[in-house]
Design a protein around this nucleic acid. Sequence first.
RNA 1: GACCCUAUCGUCUAAUGGUCAGGAUAGUAGGCUUUCAACCUGCAGAUCUCGGUUCAACUCCGGGUAGGGUUACCA
Length: 482
Amino acid sequence: MRLAPYPSGALHIGNARMVVLNNEYVNKHDGEVYLFYDDTIGSPKSLRNTPKAKYVLPEAYDLIKDGLEWLGVKYTKVFYKSDRLELYYEYCEKLIKDGIAYVCFCSAGDFKNKFKDQKKPCPHRAQSVEKNLKEWNFMLEGKYEETTAVVRLKTGMDQKDPAVRDNIIMRISEAEHPRVGNKYLVWPMLEFSWAIDDYLIGITHIIRGADLVKEDFIEDFIWDHFGWKKAEFLHYGRIKFPDMKLSKTEARNNIQKGLYEGWDDPRTWSLQSLKKRGIKPEALKESLLSLGMSISGITFSTGWLYSKNKDLIDEISDRYFFVEDPVLLEIDEVPFEEYMAEPMLLPSNPKKGKRIIKGKVSNKKLKIFISKKDANKLKVGQILRLKDLINIQILSIDLKNNNVTSYYHSLELNREYSIIHWVPYDSNIKVKILKPDGVVSNGYGEINLKSIPLNTTIQFERYGFVNPIKLENDELFCYFTH
RNA sequence: GACCCUAUCGUCUAAUGGUCAGGAUAGUAGGCUUUCAACCUGCAGAUCUCGGUUCAACUCCGGGUAGGGUUACCA
């Protein structure tokens, strides 16, 4: 089998389905999978400035390799379409000699309106083999500019299905290719190149999305013509990823404009970004695999991925205190000089030990931060518990100035009081969290966060899982996991 | 428009023509818990529609309807 990514950017969660399915199939049947960079030229030079333009991005080759490595996919060979142009030329010439392909000079619009839609042959279809060969060589020699001449396959202008009437198999592109530069002027279309390559490299099974079912026809047509052994096609349906913009092209544009941080920006939903968020490859694999191979269109729910991932990281992620959008809370009449809380790193595994959060009380006054969200729910007179510390009673609430006052109530845990999290006023660390939608949330975390390992998920209690990325200038920067 | 494909709980997915239509996730109620998390126990929730074949239809056939795809000198 083969993985055939188009190297226009890093693999994203949508491309991952193709990868995971191929990998699973190969593992199950003790087969082999090749990595085959589908790096044809993409959009012609003259169309490159449109936002939809598709073209090879040099760094994508490595981004793809990294992504596959992260997913744990093992391939046995690597191919590049851009290495194989001579092969396509050779077989294209054979098709012309066999009278089954011709050089066509119709414009795209004319061909569609005057001939394809009318089921009529265009004037070039009847050219002699000699004439076609001559024109084909002119194409290769650069006599024609891009969009003025193409090679079409004689699948039949009377095909019932308009999608498969004399498709283009070769066209001219003056664009420069990152690997082979301007060495080649004539490039194959995807279906044609695969018809040749799938046979030549000995592919037995092809898994592709339902959006490519019509491509099967072209491959089949050419295999029939040459009398080649056929591969078997398997298809899976379209996935919709609501609320994600899964476009390598768009990601590329936003990175170039500086709107995204890079290929690991969470908004790209690239494998790199998932890794950086602390998503485990197994979780991604399982959630994609659980969708099966159904051909009908489906809607993906990030909930499945997060649920699978949570199962994996919940028992290994240490717990810490964090308050988002801090609000100052003053506690008066505190009957001791200093305080100390000793919450467990991981309550489900006490062996991991405790952390210590402590500070001093001055003039019976203790100052801490709580989150804005919790502060919003407070009512004057309410008694609540600061987790692992004390119970307090609320005296006044001034949300405009982010200030709440209270006084000490009692020490012992009483489950009737709701429990909230807190961070000392004078001993804390700034925390920034980048979320998948690009929103950054700010707050303070407990001081122990200064000495945690990076790139290992942690849980901010009553907030969520995050993956700490860097500690700089006394500020911890994290990616939000879920 | 033409052509192709698909149709089961909100979502995803199971069910040799015979199951009480199962599971996952989400939802909901309770339990447990110094996290509103996790965990445990309940509850609720689906065969698009109309015909046909059959002792028996989610399953096979036909017509509707709805959704998706292709109709690119993109992949």
